[in-house]
Every structure is written in structure tokens, then in C-alpha cells.
């Protein structure tokens, strides 16, 4: 019997491939009130709760959650080592808002023969390198990365 636990998997683009989305986000953030943004790195964070072994998690991350050619995944067991300083903005849908992506992943896991998960939550994580203060990062993130009507977000300084 495998114990039920929550697994966190972070998927981010490999450095050798261009990351068009992140570079475009840097421009967008600059134009929405955070002029000193130098770099943005976007990744996806999956939180999956269920009875999964480490092998399960590795397999489902490689086969389902990431594109192994252009993306890397990391299973986060403890707080990740950071290469700061940067601002980390985490954005997820409010629980009352339909999350089709989580729904699709859940169905796919079952179809792939994994045990059905209890819940799946997906967050977008933006690591923003900038000299701006928190209020500036927050206001530009609200203007460009998320919509407070449907999203919850957190902003933390990482060093």
C-alpha cells in the first residue's frame, strides 16, 4: 500500500532552446510598470496528490507533464535551491474556477494506468530578475501575468 502524499513537479524549458514565451513576458512586464526587469523564466508547477511511488512520479512527469526534448522536470522534495536574487510569482486558478488542464491531466493519468489522483493543482511560476520592489512587481504582474478575478497569486523574494 502506497501512502497518499502530495508531489510537486516543476517543468521548465531547457536552457539550450530559446524560450520565446519568457522573453516576450519580459517585454510585457517592462511595459506594464516594472521597467528594470532583466530576465523572466517561466515554469509550470504541478501538485499531484495520490498514492504514487517515486517511479510513478518520474514516469508521469517524463511521459505526460513535460516535453522531454525541449523541457526538463524536477521533482521538488524540499524547497528548491535558488539561484537568486529574483522575485518568484506563483499564479494559480481560484478553486471555484474550472481548470480544464488539471481535468485533462487527471483523465490522462487514469488512461495511462496510474492510480487516480485525489487532486491536481497547476501553477505558473515566474522567476523575475529585477531591481524593482515588491509593489512594482505586484502591480505589473496583476496587469500582465494574471487576472485577480480568476487567479490567486503569491510573490516571494528569493535570494
Amino acid at each position: 500500500m502506497i501512502a497518499v502524499s502530495t508531489h510537486k513537479i516543476e517543468v521548465s524549458p531547457k536552457s539550450e532552446y530559446g524560450d520565446a514565451e519568457s522573453s516576450s513576458l519580459a517585454v510585457v512586464l517592462k511595459s506594464s510598470g516594472a521597467p528594470s526587469v532583466t530576465k523572466v523564466r517561466k515554469s509550470r508547477l504541478y501538485e499531484i496528490r495520490g498514492s504514487f511511488t517515486a517511479t510513478h512520479i518520474n514516469r508521469l512527469s517524463r511521459d505526460l507533464l513535460c516535453d522531454p526534448i525541449t523541457e526538463d522536470f524536477r521533482v521538488l522534495s524540499q524547497p528548491p535551491s535558488t539561484q537568486g536574487p529574483f522575485w518568484k510569482v506563483e499564479v494559480r486558478l481560484k478553486p471555484t474556477v474550472l481548470d480544464p488542464e488539471a481535468d485533462t491531466i487527471k483523465n490522462a493519468l487514469i488512461e495511462m494506468g496510474f492510480p487516480p489522483p485525489d487532486f491536481i493543482r497547476i501553477a505558473s511560476v515566474y522567476k523575475i530578475e529585477s531591481k524593482c520592489g515588491k509593489p512594482q512587481i505586484e502591480s505589473s504582474a496583476v496587469r500582465s501575468l494574471l487576472n485577480p478575478i480568476i487567479h490567486l497569486y503569491s510573490i516571494t523574494a528569493c535570494s
Binding site: L93, K94, T96, V97, L98, D99, P100, D103, T104, I149, I150
Partner: peptide
Amino acid sequence: EDHSTAVQIGHPLN
């Protein structure tokens, strides 16, 4: 005003 109840999200695969 806040209209969060009127927001809909699409689920194309459905």
C-alpha cells in the same frame, strides 16, 4: 464591480 460569478473558462476537449 466584481463579476467573478460571470466568468467562464472553456474546456475544448470536452
